[in-house]
Amino acid sequence: MKDDVVLRVVAKLLVPFILLFALYVQFHGDFGPGGGFQAGVIIAAAVIFYAIIFGLPTARSVVPDWLVEAMVAAGVLLYLGVGLAGILLGGNYLDYFVLGATPVAGQHRGIFWVEAGVGITVSGVMLKIFYMFAARARDK
């Protein structure tokens, strides 16, 4: 599909907005529907869309394999780290109240980082699975 002008232009126009929407879903999850999981899937969908239109090698040069694999692990580590930060600051594991100046601020901070961890892991895993499948198709 690389040679279709309409598809290329539409994809180029859409991908930034999809990514922006994913960030909105990620960071606005406190107030509206959404959160880390949904945002992670939308980010992955944007990259998959890009890969379908411009080809897997192009997408792999934009979002390289090492980054995707690092994301898979980094999200879980971030989540675990938030829990450990609660212990280090004198609370229980995954206790957000101690993370900020006031309990509510601490909750905000804790939820923010936890959701970020979920989003990073989910988008990393989705992308990794897609890359594995697509690469197999190409090998044959």
Partner: peptide
């Protein structure tokens, strides 16, 4: 009041 997060789903899920 406890979490300051208006979306209850997010509050329950993450906190």
């Amino acid at each position: 009041r406890e979490t300051g997060v208006p979306n209850i789903v997010t509050a329950v899920l993450a906190s």
